[in-house]
Design a protein around this nucleic acid. Structure first.
Lengths: 252, 252
DNA sequence: CTAGAAGTTGACGCAGCGTCAAGGTCAAAC
DNA sequence: GTTTGACCTTGACGCTGCGTCAACTTCTAG
């Protein structure tokens, strides 16, 4: 069986122009070219086209696709590679769905995006980090804790948080050093604030991992764009980080 | 907090050129432009960029993204739309994975990649549907049946098929209803044509599953893009479907 | 035999940047 | 103070993967 360019294009859901383009660039030649110059495609060509479209959908460039098709000793290897690529893509999207969904839930539950639990890095936006660093349970417990709070309690927690941030900003403005007694007292308050969140190492009295978490959190304030603006500017964030890490090293 | 163009680019995993491009096309202006012309981005701009990149990953064009961001009254609506789009994309990939996986299995079991019982929906392109709906054996038998035919027989079958399609197109053009005697006679012919394929419920006299298959086939003519253009246009396909399903309900 | 549907080869256009080119600016070092 | 090197700026051209005429030929159906 053979198809004309249009027949194949319609079947494949592409345009005849695309097929001519693929011919031009040497990606897919018609199986036969009539004396009139017409292009005809046989099932083999169709199979090749299907593979091309598959790879194209994965965002591969045409030259890259051509290379794969050329290098491919075994068709099955190519297909297996395809499946792997597709699965990876699917997983990536799955992660993104979860991420967006959690952001949405956070919005709907009345929590403002950024701030609040965010300061602790324990809201949904950090789910992956939290889980990978401190375990699934820490995330679940922390999350449940937050969602189990009443609106008044949430408001109170928010107030606590804002006070803490204000204390940090004040310390920065005061021009003292991160290791100064002033800064260290704020750091202590920060750690205590953290210990209110059940499921965290700090709340559970795990000293080793608690230290680790405080240090890590300090880094996040500086490096993670999601904390942007929290402590006025970069200088503020680095101050908080340095103070927290000094506290973790010397006083925990 | 503020970032320079490079800092933001690195964080977001894009190039500074891209950010300048987004500024140029009015998609993302920096929150502040220094007296020296330097671009500076604040957290709000970062959030907007994140949404832009999300949509871009879904294959949306920059103008479309701009429109979405402009029209968006409620952030939650935007997020929900995102989730829907992402889920759709994930499902599409999931279907593709299954499809490729089946192709791979077909290859390993020694079957030829694609041929042309296609019109009946019984070629390899439909292998997964065929197998999942009517069993592995139906596929194998149908496949063997096709390959066992001589070229002349294949040509004859193709002629039969084309005649059938022509009859449908004529019925559509005639302007009659799908339940009319005319249309129903063509449907009867369609079913008889189907019964020629061994291994199908219709050929084996399984009335229940035969009805099911005819209905299903009707849906495929309409819903499956691979049948696009088979019956002239969408109107034709729906006509065929309605006629077949009416036939299946009342006369089988 | 003629209409119109479908085929052909150019050629230009467009998005979304990459990639120089040709300079200004800034922070730190000397 | 100046120099160095990293970073910023605005053009401007290039590239990919086609869409979209244009101008012409060929096939198919009435």
């Amino acid at each position: 069986m053979e198809w004309t360019i249009q027949e194949l294009a319609t079947r494949a859901g592409i345009s005849s122009r695309t097929l001519r383009h693929y011919d031009r660039v040497g990606l897919l030649a018609p199986s036969r070219v009539g004396a009139n110059g017409y292009r005809y495609y046989n099932p083999t060509a169709v199979a090749r086209l299907q593979r091309i479209l598959l790879m194209r959908q994965l965002g591969m460039g045409l030259p890259a696709i051509a290379e794969v098709l050329a290098d491919e000793v075994d068709t099955r290897d190519g297909l297996r590679a395809h499946i792997a690529a597709l699965e990876e893509e699917r997983d990536r999207i799955e992660r993104q769905i979860r991420s967006v969904r959690h952001t949405l839930e956070a919005l709907q539950s009345g929590a403002e995006p950024r701030m609040d639990v965010m300061l602790a890095g324990f809201n949904d936006g950090y789910k992956d980090e939290v889980i990978s660093r401190w375990g699934e349970r820490a995330f679940q417990v922390g999350n449940d804790w937050w969602h189990g709070k009443s609106l008044d309690q949430q408001r109170a927690w928010k107030q606590d948080t804002e006070d803490l941030v204000a204390a940090w900003v004040a310390a920065v403005k005061a021009g003292v050093s991160p290791t100064s007694e002033h800064a260290q007292s704020v750091a202590a308050r920060h750690v205590q604030w953290l210990s209110q969140i059940p499921g965290t190492p700090t709340a559970e009295g795990d000293r080793e991992r608690s230290i680790e978490m405080v240090k890590c959190l300090g880094d996040m304030y500086v490096d993670d764009p999601r904390f942007a603006g929290m402590y006025d500017d970069a200088a503020g964030a680095t101050f908080v980080r340095d103070a927290l890490q000094a506290y973790a090293r010397t006083r925990m």
